[in-house]
Design a protein around this nucleic acid. Structure first.
Length: 278
DNA sequence: CATTTCACCTGGTGGC
DNA sequence: TGCCACCAGGTGAAAT
């Protein structure tokens, strides 16, 4: 489900519902592979904390936690970091709402709400970080909405792998996944098989701007709901109706009518227009 | 080191 | 209806 626009939408919708709430009680399921540190320790850290804010970093949802909401130098003392994997959902529900299959976490909050983490495939990850003597969470890759032309070009210099594979590498750019790699390469007119280090300055700048435009447009439409992605309120996004190539194999290109092709790059389905993308 | 492949999971779809 | 192959928004370990 979740690439940058979907994670941004989830973080914003969770923030709007839970900011300022205190976590009263935490329940975790028994699938321990979801937990980057022990669930008992995470629960101990979460219980009693106040959610100061919720935001996105790369593909991670970051909860900023504090001991209380009111004191103005509200410096966070801990973070709870949620990665949604392929099928993860963060939902805000009434405590008596039916608990669906594959619910792995329930956080009881003040104000009569519950935050739930649901993830059928269990590729998601939950991590608690105490910040009293430590480092806050920063993903290794650059933010594609903020990076300037020179550092963007430098990411790909000398690399022999396909540009599509490079875009999926989270330690280069954080937040781009399969949908938005394909859509951005289409808008930039670049074939996904091109070697990253072989792109011209002009092509790299087209790609940087295409990423910015596509991701920004997708955020405004609440992300792409291909199968089961929804925000904290259970609402789907609508950017999927704007897709030009992703999962449009065999359908006519919206720009030139040529049939969209699907190939494999780095083991991922890759969609492109053989005429518009050189 | 850079790059590729594969395993990790459940569930939906389409062919037979 | 059932069975099977294949596909899916991601990542990190192992292999090359």
């Amino acid at each position: 489900m979740p690439e940058l626009p979907e994670v941004e939408t989830v973080a914003r919708s969770v923030d709007a519902r839970v900011r300022g709430s205190r976590i009263l009680q935490v329940w975790f399921g028994s699938h321990h592979e979801l937990f980057k540190n022990p669930p008992s320790r995470q629960a101990t850290g979460l219980e009693g904390s106040v959610i100061l804010a919720v935001h996105r970093s790369g593909k991670h949802v970051v909860f900023e936690l504090g001991p209380s909401a009111t004191p103005s130098p509200a410096t966070p003392h801990a973070q709870w970091i949620v990665h949604l994997g392929m099928t993860g959902q963060l939902l805000v529900k009434a405590p008596d709402a039916p608990v669906v299959r594959h619910t792995h976490a329930r956080l009881t909050l003040t104000g009569g709400f519950e935050l739930r983490f649901v993830d059928p495939r269990r590729f998601g990850r939950l991590e608690f970080r105490n910040l009293t003597r430590a480092q806050c969470f920063v993903p290794p890759g650059a933010e594609p909405l903020e990076i300037a032309p020179q550092p963007f070009a430098a990411l790909f210099r000398g690399r022999r792998l396909a540009i599509k594979a490079a875009l999926l590498n989270q330690s280069l750019l954080a937040g781009v996944g399969n949908i938005y790699a394909d859509e951005s390469l289409f808008r930039a007119g670049i074939r996904p098989t091109r070697r990253a280090g072989r792109l011209t300055h002009a092509e790299l700048e087209r790609l940087r701007l295409a990423l910015r435009d596509v991701l920004g447009h997708a955020i405004r439409l609440g992300g792409s709901s291909v199968s089961d992605y929804v925000d904290a309120n259970g609402d789907p996004g609508s950017f999927q109706v704007e897709h030009c190539v992703y999962q449009r194999t065999g359908q006519p290109c919206r720009r030139c009518g040529t049939l969209i092709r699907r190939i494999l790059i780095a083991g991922r389905g890759t969609h492109f227009c053989p005429r518009c993308q050189r």
